[in-house]
Design a protein around this nucleic acid. Structure first.
Lengths: 193, 193
DNA sequence: CGAATTATGGAATGAATGTTCCAGAATGAG
DNA sequence: CTCATTCTGGAACATTCATTCCATAATTCG
């Protein structure tokens, strides 16, 4: 049996929901906000995604896929390892410096929701681990290629870069200026020497 | 005319409210939660503090006073400038490493509330500026005392330290382990050389 | 002791919340 | 076509929310 077909694109609706959560946070987003953005009806939403919380976890999973893909593409891509890291930091900080203060959905979630929501916490922690791994890989490549000293500590540096990334996002949300962001990136990269 | 005296300590009630906002965030905190923690009644709360939002701004102002006092005491205190910075970072990261993931009320607010609340945003940005200034002062002292090279850039380093501090708080909320925190601090300090 | 003033406790209010439910519409299978 | 199935739109629901209001209690001033 097949029944009536959906009149909306599930993936597109999910992405729209993700945008809203990203801009407003979890608690400050009402189901009505979501429906308006998704362009679908209550019934369809609850039928397809379960409830608000399930929709959020779906949204953050979707976000995680996108963001890790992009991070890994940049870090593992062509170009020197350290060059790639610089590229990633600048790219991440770009919307921040523009005053678009949505930040990063993962960071927002760590701060707002994760402390009270073990399931969401686990999902977002996995995401961070994956980013750290990508940094780690890249730093090891940098050591191999001689771009980084052999006594550099790739693990420590990877953890540090993760931290800086989170920090940059927060600074961006606090509407730090472009020059502040540039300073931070400069010092961060100098720590890789 | 004086009338009936308050039966509660206004400052203590405010601090209790601050703790709740700190643990739960703004949206996830109900007025009832606040009243329970403050140990006072609805009427008294609305009479004394105005409403939930006003109570929050009072709470974050209170928090700001406390935290900047502590930061400045540590950085401007005795001991070498860089030693003081190390001390501050470790101290900030300590609760983080213990898995108490309340983080920092200022950071939480930047992420959750500031993007949609200009008044709160301004208050918390002022707080960050003050912390950055304290770092700046300390770094200039480090240059004067020869602990830092004369071509170091105190402004850039101060901004960087602010960023790291925010990042550490987020990493702590993502329940990074103690060794992660130590790695981050080590690399951060190495950037001051 | 009154009179004026302020605080307290809790009921009451109205709006907004997330969720459920159902009648009608659209499809495929038999 | 007819039935089973699935989706749609929106009404309906119960809860929770922040806030207001008021009768009562406690205090100072005259």
């Amino acid at each position: 049996m097949v029944g009536r077909p959906k009149e909306f694109d599930e993936q597109q609706a999910l992405e729209r929901a993700m945008e809203v959560f990203w801009s407003n946070g979890y608690e400050a987003t009402s189901v009505q906000d979501l429906l308006d953005a998704m362009g679908i009806n209550r019934g369809s939403m609850y039928d397809t995604f379960g409830d608000k919380h399930a929709l959020f976890t779906a949204a953050i999973t979707c976000y995680g896929r996108t963001i890790t893909r992009r991070v890994e593409a940049t870090l593992d891509g062509p170009g020197s390892p350290l060059g790639n890291i610089r590229k990633l930091l600048s790219r991440m900080a770009d919307p921040a410096a523009d005053g678009k203060c949505r930040g990063c959905l993962a960071t927002n979630t760590v701060v707002e929701l994760a402390p009270h929501d073990p399931e969401v916490a686990e999902a977002v922690k996995a995401l961070l681990r994956r980013v750290e791994k990508a940094f780690h890989r890249t730093l090891e490549r940098a050591v191999e290629s001689g771009e980084l000293s052999p006594d550099a500590n790739p693990r420590a540096l990877a953890r540090f870069l993760c931290c800086t990334l989170q920090g940059l996002v927060v600074m961006g949300k606090a509407s730090a200026g472009r020059s502040t962001i540039k300073d931070i990136i400069k010092v961060t990269l100098s720590a890789m020497a």
